[in-house]
Each structure stands twice: as structure tokens, then as C-alpha cells.
Design a protein around this nucleic acid. Structure first.
Lengths: 211, 211
DNA sequence: GAGCAGAGTCAACGTTCGCTCACCTCCTTC
DNA sequence: GAAGGAGGTGAGCGAACGTTGACTCTGCTC
């Protein structure tokens, strides 16, 4: 075969194609042969770079997760605005992430069975940053009296879970019900509900609210 | 081979074992051979009863879904109590369903990729009954002034999504964080938050509250 | 230029998969 | 009791899978 273009970063190319194929067809539905063909190499070449299919999948997950710095993005919003702003920040970030990176969404959806380690990685690197941020903000605001006395961890997990469920299943709803529902509309509807449920009666939010 | 016990309902037995195995190992991870061995028959016998693996999987989903009458269970609670009671009814039912039927939970988790029709069936037969009930109750209570003006469909979808996410991922959290969180604790924490977020300021709930 | 290591190819391996075929019982029906 | 269909067996098909081994090519270092 001709010299082809130089490999440059063959490993990266393989990872990219593997990521696309795994997210589209799942772990079992993606044959090494397919990844090789898409990457323009033979199967044996893939085994030069990776120890096996399972390890390749793990690397795909790790690489995909490393593309985003969720904790870093959220850090800038620490302590800013009222609780409603905090919830909106998290919800917006999750939904825009899902929109920017559909591959990640598919990988998250498919990671239920195939490869429990990948699932744990996604939980740790995608869910947890949101939850940790939320727990910190809620705890702070509970101490300040803005937020009612509730369990910060459970509340944060559930809020993030709600938004994730929304992001993961948006496609299903539009396929089933026909009508597409805009992510922004969902946020505008639900964030105020949750914020209102969290807010203390006696105290207005310290920096926001009331103009 | 000896006469074995009579088949009686061989088809049902196969469905049971297939349900167990599919939920435990997923679609691709479950070989017809395994289902046959578990059912005490040969593979060929399975093809006497089902047209193929895909159809068998569909039948498993349908049979599993038919075990429960969610809409029927909820019908008795129509129009009863305040909005908080309504939310609690839904959340309790989802979580107890998940606890009673872990197979259903696994099938829901795994249905992301494998067999899109099965996924749609689960949405239609499991999610939708909860959402429909909630939409009806919220709409009624919005008209009555108990609930603020919000989008009943989006709100219902998200609430059910939150509870489902909680039911589906409870195992992951306990594996990751070590500490098990009781389902009832989650309900007690979150239902009041959501209810409070939905309730109109001016009006107390008509039949509940205030005692 | 010899030596070497990384990256790639080609061909094949052993296994497993979904599925089918020819044949063999039973059980019911006339 | 003959007929026949439903349900079961055992063997095996062709295809696809993940993986490997023997080999080649290329570019770098003494």
C-alpha cells in the first residue's frame, strides 16, 4: 500500500474513531475490525497501541472525560448570586455540555452495563463535579439562612440527576411525543420551582432577588 | 433423556429465564445457548417458541411491563390530598417498584442502546403512566389555585425523571460513596422541596395542610 | 552501513454466536 | 389404531468475533 499520510498521532486518531463508534453502536456492537477500518489501519495495528478491546474502551472514556473541565468551569461561579442562580448555572452547564458533546451523552447512556469501570469513571468525572459544587453552595447558603434546612447531598444528587435525566432522554421524548422541547424552556420552568422549594421563607437571598 | 417434568408452560419458563439473564448481562451479553441451558431445553426448542433473539427480547420487555399496572395503582389516588401528597404517591410508587422488581430496573438501564423498540415500550408503559397521572393532578390543582402557573408536562417529566434517576443510580452511589442512602430518606427530603416550589403563595392546599 | 525498535501488514487461530435441519417422541383427534 | 401437529433433540452450519504470530518497512542512532 502507498505511504498514506504519515501517522503523526495514530493513537489519537484511533481513539477518536473508537469514541465515535462506541458511542454510536455500544461496546458489543463495535468490532475492532470496524475501528481499524475507520482509522485506516489493520486490526493488528490497534493491538500495537492498546492491550485489548476493554482497555481501548477505558481509554476512550478517559479521553472523552478529559476533554471537559467541569469543576474548573464551575469554580468561577462559586458564591455568586442567589440559590436560583446557582441551580441555573448547573443546569445550563449540564445541558450545554450535552448539546456540545452528544458522544458523551451516548457513552453515558450506554455505559449502564458494558464495562462497569467506565460507568464509575463517568460518575466520578462528570456527575460528581456538579454535585460537589452544588453541595458546597447549598451548605454555605444554608448556614447563611438563605436556604432551608435540608440534606445538601441528597438534594444535590437529585437535582443533578433530574437535569441529567432530562439531557439523556430529551431525544426519546421528541421521538415519542413528536414535539421537541427546548432545553432552555425546561430550565426556565424547573429551576425556579426547585429554587423556591429550597428558599427560606423568612430571608430573601442575600445578593440577588428584589432588584 | 428421561421424561423430565412436563412442560406445562415452557414458553413462560423460557421468558422468565430470559428476563433474568437479559437483565443481568444485557442483550449482547446473553447467548441463546445460556437461556436454553437455564431453561433446561436446547436452543432449537427456543426457536420453536420465538422467532429469534430480537423477538424474544421484545417479548421479555412486554411480559415484564405487563406484570405491573401502574396506571391502575395510581388511579385510586386521583384528586386526593395536597400536591405534596401527590408527589409522594408517585415517588413512593416508583421507588417501591424499583425495590420489588430489580430486573425491571436493570432492563431499563440496559435498554439504552440495545433494541430501541424495547426502550420505547418501557418509556410508554412505565414512565408515561406516572407522568400522565402527574400532569392531570397538577393541571387540576393549577386551575384550583393550589399550584402556581408552570408547565405541567415539563414539570411532571422532570419530577419523574428525577425519581427514576434516583432509583436507577442508587446502587451506583452506594458502591461509589460507600454509604447506602435509604429511598425513604430521599423522598422525605425532596418531595417537600418540590411541593413547596409548586405551591401558590396565596393559597393553602385545599384538603391537606394547616392542621 | 550495521543494528535496532516502533509501527504496520497479512493470514490465520480458536471460539462463540444466531440459527437451521433432520429426526424423534408424545398427545390429540378422528 | 392411523394421522398429524406441537414440541423436543443433537449435530452442525456459516459468519463474526477478539486476538496473535511471523513478517516487512521505515527512520533513528552509533
Amino acid at each position: 500500500m502507498a505511504t498514506e499520510t504519515r501517522p503523526a498521532n495514530r493513537r489519537g486518531e484511533i481513539l477518536d474513531h473508537a469514541s465515535r463508534l462506541f458511542s454510536a453502536h455500544g461496546y458489543d456492537g463495535t468490532a475492532i475490525r470496524l475501528i481499524a477500518r475507520a482509522s485506516g489501519v489493520t486490526e493488528a495495528a490497534i493491538y500495537r497501541h492498546f492491550d485489548g478491546k476493554a482497555q481501548l474502551y477505558d481509554e476512550v472514556i478517559r479521553a472523552k472525560v478529559r476533554e471537559h473541565d467541569i469543576a474548573g468551569d464551575l469554580a468561577g461561579h462559586r458564591g455568586r448570586g442567589g440559590i436560583e442562580d446557582v441551580l441555573r448555572t448547573v443546569a445550563d452547564h449540564v445541558l450545554s455540555l450535552a448539546q456540545r458533546d452528544p458522544e458523551l451523552v451516548r457513552l453515558m447512556s450506554n455505559s449502564s452495563l458494558e464495562n462497569d469501570q467506565g460507568r464509575a469513571t463517568i460518575f466520578r468525572e462528570v456527575r460528581s463535579p456538579y454535585i460537589d459544587f452544588l453541595v458546597e453552595e447549598i451548605t454555605r447558603r444554608m448556614a447563611a439562612g438563605e436556604v432551608r434546612r435540608i440534606d445538601p447531598v441528597i438534594t444535590s444528587r437529585c437535582f443533578v440527576g433530574m437535569v441529567m435525566d432530562c439531557a439523556l432522554n430529551a431525544g426519546m421524548w421528541s421521538r415519542l411525543a413528536g414535539a421537541e422541547v427546548d432545553a432552555q424552556t425546561v430550565v426556565c420552568n424547573n429551576v425556579p420551582i426547585f429554587a423556591r422549594g429550597l428558599t427560606n421563607d423568612g430571608a430573601a437571598s442575600p445578593s440577588n432577588d428584589g432588584v
